[in-house]
């Protein structure tokens, strides 16, 4: 059973949704980044999503862009990122670790080698932000060979045939975006996901985890109440920068918000 499957099963027994924390690897430098990664796991994050910084991150808003710029300006290389993942894996053997990055970094290293190195470092999944389902087949094949889950993105506007392709090609979880646009925080969360979650369930795609715009514990609870198996916060955490104390407090508060109210427990059984 994969670490994602074990996590969803464990959380189901505890009547909790999953809380995922995103951090940019190497932001602002390798040493600080290693410390912040440990901080978010120790503060209660169930799954960790890590960005490997790219010079031209078209799917990201200003906060994540700035994080990638800081990492690259400090001279962080892809090898350093795999080193950080290996360190996190040594310290936390059970936590699922997912990579979020862009296709050009895979093209440069070679797709096979990139995925093999990611798996060897201890990553569980990879999401390539600029590889949509129409281009995903070779990526899915390589991920299978490497032993990684390929995670794919679905949105409220994603048509049903695409959801079926996602079901066929991906594993681990389905990254559902809470709204159109790029990563970043918003005051109001659009939660028109009934149709999307139903399609995911019917197609047998991996459990939906909601990202893009989750910035408060209230939104964590709302996201789970809307039917997601988990939520991911990114920009809201990255914004806190080097303040490990504030990061710990926000992650703990967000994790506490994943306890499911009694009336919702049944409905979550669909995914876990």
């Amino acid at each position: 059973m994969s670490r994602y499957e074990q996590m969803f099963q464990r959380l189901k027994q505890r009547n909790e949704g999953a809380f995922g924390a995103f951090l940019m690897l190497g932001d602002p430098d390798v040493e600080t980044s290693a410390r912040l990664l440990d901080t978010v796991v120790e503060a209660g994050a169930d799954m960790i999503e890590v960005g490997i910084p790219f010079s031209d991150p078209v799917a990201d808003g200003p906060v994540i862009q700035a994080a990638a710029d800081r990492a690259l300006s400090s001279g962080v290389r892809v090898d350093d990122c795999f080193g950080l993942i290996a360190g996190l894996r040594r310290n936390h053997p059970a936590v699922p670790i997912g990579i979020l990055t862009y296709a050009n970094l895979l093209a440069a290293r070679g797709r096979d080698k990139f995925m093999a190195d990611a798996a060897a470092a201890g990553a569980d999944s990879i999401l390539v932000a600029d590889v949509p389902s129409i281009e995903a087949e070779p990526y899915a094949a390589t991920a299978r060979t490497a032993g990684l889950d390929l995670v794919m993105i679905a949105a409220p506007n994603t048509p049903e045939p695409v959801i079926r392709r996602i079901a066929a090609l991906s594993s681990g979880y389905t990254y559902c975006v809470a709204r159109a646009g790029v990563t970043g925080t918003r005051d109001a969360l659009s939660l028109d996901h009934d149709r999307l979650f139903a399609l995911i369930r019917d197609a047998g795609a991996p459990p939906p985890v909601l990202g893009f715009g989750i910035s408060t514990p209230e939104q964590v609870a709302q996201g789970l109440a809307s039917g997601a198996a988990g939520v991911i916060a990114g920009s809201a955490l990255v914004k806190l920068g080097l303040d490990a104390g504030a990061l710990r407090d926000l992650v703990s508060a967000m994790k506490r918000a994943t306890a499911l109210p009694v009336e919702q427990r049944e409905q979550h059984g669909h995914f876990a």
Binding site: A103, P132, I134, A155, N157, T158, P159, A180
Partner: peptide, 22 residues
């Protein structure tokens, strides 16, 4: 898509899934 937009090994459509409908 009706076509894959390939020119030999080059081309294609590498954008976030959200943009594919556009």
């Amino acid at each position: 898509m009706k076509h894959d937009g390939r020119f030999g090994r080059y081309g294609g459509c590498y954008v976030p899934e959200i943009l594919v409908p556009a």
